[in-house]
Design a protein around this nucleic acid. Structure first.
Lengths: 152, 152
DNA sequence: CGTTGTTGTAACCATGATTGATACATAACA
DNA sequence: TGTTATGTATCAATCATGGTTACAACAACG
């Protein structure tokens, strides 16, 4: 099991928007070329980001853009937006422990608190990374002399 | 996506072994009754725990037991033993970003370091929880007057 | 207007992971 | 040698994921 690639694709998309918005119209077609997936995948993804208030997109004319300052979008926001985990629970508890067994009866209570702490540690770390941070790192890797040019 | 229930089942099994080993023979049948799954699921799980050096189990005569002191078994050990994540990578990167696109070319490098840090935060938290800790919490919930009795 | 380009979304399929179940050979032990 | 339990192969059901086609809804523009 792994966290869905929707998450990394979403980050890719958001960074792409910021890098290219000045020079290109950001369509699902454009984004799909960079990510290398079907444009419909991008559209569905962008709908999720839109519902979460991270991007805005207009029908017909086309074009997506971020809906918030980049320093206010964290990896946790993206992660939650694309619903990588069912109902926010990272760990999947087996549903029917035998309640007649003292261990089966109490395992949930014994484990839950610990699992929540683990999940929180991960989410806290996610929250500490903003899209602005990622964009800055990306900009630092784009050759300045070549300009912001999309070679495809 | 959620982390496989194999993980919580494995923890359940290990705690069960420790609570009942004095009074019962720990067979896959016995464990499956507490967890409420097919005995084969338990056997396959125990094979994974065995490969990781966490339990020992004898064929024929039956009976599983832990192979290490409980304060030396952490949730991370169990997590790794049951192979909840493919090749140890929590995040699933989309495989084919367009290398002709400056963003597609660099997204991996920009994200990787951050994702590793997030995964590490989670694993560190897992490592801080030992089975001894969980067993103590469990013992505290078992009614002392009723003894260690399995009502099934 | 009507044409064009793009989004929004339904429908469908292929693939693989997960979980569950049956069956049986293998081994330990009395 | 009979009993009991493990080790493991095999199959089935269900579900998530990812990918594709198709098309209606909509905006902008000549």
């Amino acid at each position: 099991m792994q966290i869905s690639s929707r998450f990394t694709i979403a980050v890719h998309v958001l960074v792409c928007i910021e890098v290219f918005k000045k020079d290109y119209k950001i369509t699902s077609e454009f984004l799909s070329s960079s990510v290398n997936v079907n444009p419909v995948v991008i559209r569905k993804l962008i709908q999720q980001l839109k519902k979460a208030g991270l991007v805005c997109v207009v029908r017909g004319s086309g074009g997506a853009d971020t809906a918030k300052p980049l320093d206010q979008i964290t990896l946790l926001d993206v992660y939650n937006a694309v619903e990588c985990v069912d109902s926010g629970e990272l760990f999947h508890f087996h549903e029917n422990p035998n309640l007649l067994c003292p261990v089966g009866k109490n395992i949930h209570a014994v484990l839950d608190e610990r699992l929540e702490k683990i999940q929180k540690a991960m989410e806290d770390e996610m929250q500490s990374v903003t899209l602005l941070d990622l964009l800055n790192r990306m900009q630092g890797r784009l050759q300045p002399e070549s300009g912001i040019r999309c070679n495809y």
